[in-house]
């Protein structure tokens, strides 16, 4: 008997009587009128910068400014054709000096400031982690109250990889002193695009 069979057999022999799992509705967490405000508050408290834009077109100006400021910027939102393919092919070594990655987030969560993005958005799984400065763009319409709503709206296996990101990378492993910028980005800037701001 191989280990798979042995483990499964031992589970069957040792597991308790089946307990059914009934449906459950989580208590409501946040009033929907304050979603964007709560989302922003959370992000700021988690050491991120938040900017508001009134349309996606305004983003191009921001991207230009970043390009003027940093030598190595990857904008996944506006990349098309050959450059888009190139981004997908870059490995860790060639991305080592990446200053800025600009990526569109699918969905934001007001209760914890987390932003969901998948491989389709990032083009290259390394980008949101290896860059020094991460810029995420999110439509205000796509901000939901809590994780329960979030998981109703996303399909976690739609892409091979997806991640909730809620700030710059950080650690408190030395004496519990918070240090921003562990292995991933040193900063996170979030652009919230809303037509009425």
């Amino acid at each position: 008997m191989n280990s798979r069979e042995k483990i499964l057999k031992d589970i069957v022999a040792n597991k308790p009587v089946l307990t059914e799992l009934t449906d459950w509705v989580a208590p409501k967490s946040i009033q929907s009128t304050t979603l964007v405000g709560d989302f922003e508050k959370l992000l700021v408290s988690l050491h991120s910068k938040v900017n508001h834009l009134s349309s996606k077109n305004d983003l191009l100006k921001e991207v230009d400014e970043l390009r003027a400021q940093y030598p190595f910027v990857i904008d996944t939102i506006h990349a098309e054709g050959e450059p888009r393919k190139n981004i997908q092919q870059l490995d860790a070594r060639s991305l080592e000096s990446l200053d800025v990655a600009i990526i569109e987030g699918r969905l934001g969560v007001a209760e914890n400031g987390a932003i969901w993005l998948t491989e389709t958005n990032m083009l290259n799984r390394l980008l949101p982690f290896i860059c020094k400065h991460l810029v995420l763009v999110i439509d205000a319409e796509n901000i939901v109250a809590d994780m329960h709503e979030a998981y109703k709206k996303i399909r976690i296996d739609e892409d091979g990889y997806g991640v909730f990101i809620s700030g710059p990378s950080k650690t408190a492993d030395i004496e519990q002193s918070l240090v921003i910028g562990a292995h991933g980005p040193l900063t996170l800037t979030v652009y919230i695009i809303s037509n009425h701001s």
């Binding site: 988690l46 296996d157 091979g160 990889y161 809620s166 990378s169």
Partner: peptide, 17 residues
């Protein structure tokens, strides 16, 4: 664990690159 509302990264791996 730490009083954070969520960890900075919650990564969902389904298919290898």
């Amino acid at each position: 664990a730490t009083g954070q509302p969520i960890t900075t990264y919650s990564s969902h791996f389904h298919r290898p690159d």
